[in-house]
């Protein structure tokens, strides 16, 4: 027979459907808030005038930027490690941009404008892409809440059981703890 406490507790599916509803709402809201697609934006035409000799830009400087970009044509391959001819040319482009005084962020922005957000190694935090950042912590928070509620119900169940039990409570003295440990160990090994 169920206890009154348990009867009033919402069914776990209630919380799961609540989570689903919340996720759905967020998805719709974020989609509505989507400011502009990359297709609307035009690449900024900037003349590349080198302010330092191209030869002075090291491979390491180029790779530091390329590491944060994905190859625009291959699937999920960072630009700094992609071995294709096209990627080699893009890395040289980065070298020219660095020689022209561009910052890492400007170069990444330029690549994103030309090839789309997929060349960035993580979605820019705006519009729909906010979902990429919001959903995991939200789900984790909901998880903590569900776990906390389950805990409370388990503790109350345990308390009821303890109240109805005639067994004396295990004292916290060190000797008793050792005895308890030995008893449990033997129980597990037998």
């Amino acid at each position: 027979m169920k206890t009154p406490t348990r009867a009033t507790r919402p069914h776990p599916w209630f919380w799961l459907s609540g989570l689903g509803l919340l996720m759905g709402t967020l998805l719709v809201l974020s989609t509505l808030a989507w400011p502009q697609t990359r297709a609307d934006a035009q690449p900024v035409q900037i003349t590349l005038t080198t302010i330092v000799p191209i030869e002075s830009i090291t491979d390491d400087q180029v790779n530091e930027v390329a590491k944060e970009l994905f190859c625009p044509v291959c699937e999920n391959i960072p630009l700094d490690t992609c071995a294709t001819q096209a990627c080699e040319q893009w890395r040289e482009e980065i070298r020219v941009m660095l020689a022209a005084g561009w910052t890492k962020e400007q170069i990444k922005e330029d690549f994103a404008l030309r090839f789309g957000d997929r060349v960035l190694n993580e979605p820019p935090p705006r519009g729909l892409h906010l979902l990429a950042y919001v959903v995991p912590p939200l789900a984790l928070a909901v998880g903590i809440y569900i776990m906390f509620r389950s805990f409370r119900s388990w503790q109350s169940a345990e308390a009821e059981e303890a109240a109805s039990s005639v067994a004396p409570e295990v004292a916290e003295r060190a000797d008793d703890v050792d005895d308890e440990y030995l008893r449990r160990l033997d129980e597990e090994l037998d």
């Binding site: 998805l27 989609t31 989507w34 697609t37 990359r38 297709a39 994905f70 999920n76 960072p78 789309g116 957000d117 997929r118 060349v119 960035l120 190694n121 993580e122 979605p123 729909l128 892409h129 979902l131 990429a132 959903v135």
Partner: peptide, 19 residues
């Protein structure tokens, strides 16, 4: 998420190591 992004906006996003 990249699939969600492509379905909703028509443009794919990449989710790489930093995430």
């Amino acid at each position: 998420y990249p699939l969600v992004s492509e379905l909703v906006t028509g443009e794919k996003a990449s989710v790489g190591p930093p995430y």
